[in-house]
Design a protein around this nucleic acid. Structure first.
Length: 273
DNA sequence: CGGTGGACCTGCTGGC
DNA sequence: TGCCAGCAGGTCCACC
């Protein structure tokens, strides 16, 4: 579900409701998500006040007093919501924190591809999850020369390049697909055959698609919601993703589906060269 | 270096 | 109606 826009939407929805509040009690209902849950480190968060929320790549950062940060990655199917303490635990709710005022922060993740761990705030960049992450595409906005520089000396299809988190973070299958359509670039085109103008178009497209998706509350294909349970509506703006056999939103040609690196890619054979 | 395929896991959909 | 194959927003690894 979650790429950069979804995590950013989640962060923005939770921040005003979490900042300044205290984590009063933790419940852990599974031994592990994609990685084991450290009961001691998570339990050690109780009693601490939440200072601020942040985001790095597709990781949500919940910074608490005492120099710790609770880091949450939603994997493919995770959902983090703030709901009444009285509400029953839902299926696949693996981790939750009771807060004051009768609310509970709940992490549900049916597929358990997500991650939740605690790390020292000052050393986050040295944590193994963050050590090899590439550049953020927003603020400052990605530029053409920057993208070209990341691709210099490389080969391989541009879509794989966009999704390589060691170079550029936050862009997953949906937004890589949509950005390439917006830039008019065929997803299988080699990065070695992209010129300066196209790099600029692509950088602009990545930024525009991500920003618009944030504005529209993210993409809810199946189960994404923000921290209040609100679904996004960028799915209605998708030009090609998931639209194999249907008309391209821009030109009406029939959208095609191919597989790259084991993932579905959708593109318009007329708009994208 | 890059590409492929698989692993992790549950749930939903579509075809028969 | 039921069953089963295929597919799903993300990483991470082994292997060619």
């Amino acid at each position: 579900m979650p790429e950069l826009p979804e995590i950013e939407v989640l962060k923005r929805s939770l921040e005003p409701r979490l900042a300044g509040r205290r984590l009063l009690e933790v419940r852990i209902h599974a031994p592990a998500l994609r990685e084991p849950l450290d009961r001691r480190a998570l339990g050690d968060l109780t009693g601490r006040r939440i200072e601020r929320l942040g985001r790095r790549s597709k990781y949500l950062l919940i910074e608490v007093e005492g120099g710790r940060t609770l880091v949450i990655h939603l994997g493919m199917s995770g959902r983090l919501t703030l709901a009444p303490e009285a509400a029953e635990r839902e299926a696949h709710e693996h981790l939750s924190f009771r807060l004051d005022a009768g609310e509970r922060l709940r992490l549900r993740d049916p597929r358990r591809f997500g991650v939740a761990f605690v790390a020292p705030t000052s050393g986050l960049g040295r944590d193994r999850h963050f050590l090899h992450l590439g550049v953020e595409p927003l603020a400052p906005a990605l530029s053409g020369p920057q993208l070209a520089g990341l691709a210099a000396g490389r080969r391989g299809p541009v879509k794989s390049f966009l999704m390589d988190g060691r170079l550029l973070v936050g862009v997953g299958n949906i937004y890589a697909t949509e950005a390439l359509h917006r830039a008019g670039i065929h997803p299988a085109r080699s990065v070695a055959r992209i010129g300066a103008q196209r790099w600029q178009n692509l950088a602009d497209a990545v930024v525009a698609v991500l920003e618009r998706a944030i504005d529209e509350g993210g993409t809810t294909l199946n189960d994404f919601t923000d921290g209040a349970g609100q679904e996004g509506y960028f799915q209605s703006s998708l030009a090609v993703y998931g639209r194999a056999g249907k008309p391209c939103a821009a030109c009406g040609a029939t959208v095609r589906r191919i597989v790259q690196g084991g993932r579905s890619t959708f593109y318009c054979p007329r708009c994208q060269r």
